[in-house]
């Protein structure tokens, strides 16, 4: 299955992806929702976020990148850097 064209980065689309990993409605992932404190994110969920983003945006994360993925805006910025860097 050839690698499809990576999805362009869009905040609302990213909100839906994060909501899906945390099994909550997108509305619950506001710009200042904290993944750990507010959505009960743990180390496993953080890695699942990474895997979901890697698949969707065809980028590669290091495990240590997990520390930066704490809220939606922060995740967007980390992704934007990666996409920019690898773009």
């Amino acid at each position: 299955m050839p690698d499809t064209q990576p999805t362009p980065l869009d905040l609302e689309d990213l909100r839906r992806t994060i909501a899906e990993v945390f099994c909550v409605d997108p509305g619950e992932v506001t710009d200042d929702t904290r993944f750990v404190e507010d959505l009960g994110g743990d180390s496993l969920l953080a890695l699942e976020v990474i895997v979901a983003l890697e698949k969707k945006y065809s980028v590669r994360f290091a495990e240590s990148d997990v520390r930066g993925l704490t809220t939606l805006p922060r995740t967007y910025d980390v992704l934007a850097d990666k996409l920019g860097a690898e773009g």
């Binding site: 180390s43 496993l44 890695l47 699942e48 895997v51 890697e54 495990e63």
Partner: peptide, 10 residues
Amino acid sequence: LTRSFADTVI
């Protein structure tokens, strides 16, 4: 095996 991290494998 689709992804492996230090202590977690997917």
